[in-house]
Write a protein that binds this DNA or RNA. Sequence first.
DNA 1: CTTGTATTGAGACCTAGTCTCAACTCTGGT
DNA 2: ACCAGAGTTGAGACTAGGTCTCAATACAAG
Lengths: 143, 143
Amino acid sequence: MARELLAALDQAGVRLTGPRRELAALIARRKGHFTAADLLADAEQRSLGIGRATVFRLLELLADQNLVERVDLPDGRHAYVPCEPSHHHHLVCVSCGAISEVDDCGIDAVTAEAARRSGFEIQSHRLELFGHCPRCQKVEPRQ
Amino acid sequence: MARELLAALDQAGVRLTGPRRELAALIARRKGHFTAADLLADAEQRSLGIGRATVFRLLELLADQNLVERVDLPDGRHAYVPCEPSHHHHLVCVSCGAISEVDDCGIDAVTAEAARRSGFEIQSHRLELFGHCPRCQKVEPRQ
DNA sequence: CTTGTATTGAGACCTAGTCTCAACTCTGGT
DNA sequence: ACCAGAGTTGAGACTAGGTCTCAATACAAG
């Protein structure tokens, strides 16, 4: 997975530097979503000497390549989630942070209908679904 | 419209203080979305002596009452938009900032399908649509 | 192995928002 | 009309998340 990230960066025509390789490895090793601060903490814990700005710069690069997406959690925090480059949406577990991807199961019809009613010309949309993943449903049922 | 905001605050059991009345009037007078900073600037321009914290506190109150909703713009900025208390979604014009509301035209089917596929128990969702409003389409066609 | 350019880390800076606290102002009871 | 006390206020410190600048460094093409 770190390979894929690096390959994509290579594709994008940027240099494969030490810090980028290290951060890619850290991202690959994470499950679910993470914040920039999480990633920075990982790096600091390993004394990689990677700067704050570098972390944000890499996340921006990855986001440009659609390898990572920024999701806004219901509590207002921001998280990043590594994902497939194709268009899709995220299911976010509000208990454990697990992320699941869902593809466009019918939302285009919704946006088309909204466009028709409002006269807007819709360019993009963002759909985020929040709930409990199957595992957390078992742990804390019907909460 | 400022009346409605104040009535709702009254309903919520909070005091109708001077600053709240003034801010309600400022919000009522705005078109489309605005940021907390916009509102604060309005207040400062009129030398109302309203503090930063008060602005955020009122926005939070209004958000609790679903009279205002926070939308995350595609560029990562946050805006607030006054709206109907019922559940709905927003169409945001990326040129002029105009906001249009659309109700749940079929999205429940989408979330139900996503829940079925993923096993998640979906609690809430957020859908934001970005594009050009009818007016901006005329001004800068097919841009 | 050189060299030009991309990238880096540090730290200042910015925006959005929260928290604390002493001072103030509503509002209900009288 | 007045008072008391709880709710609210503004100022300013603080936090999180992110951007910018700049001199130093590392990559990679030749």
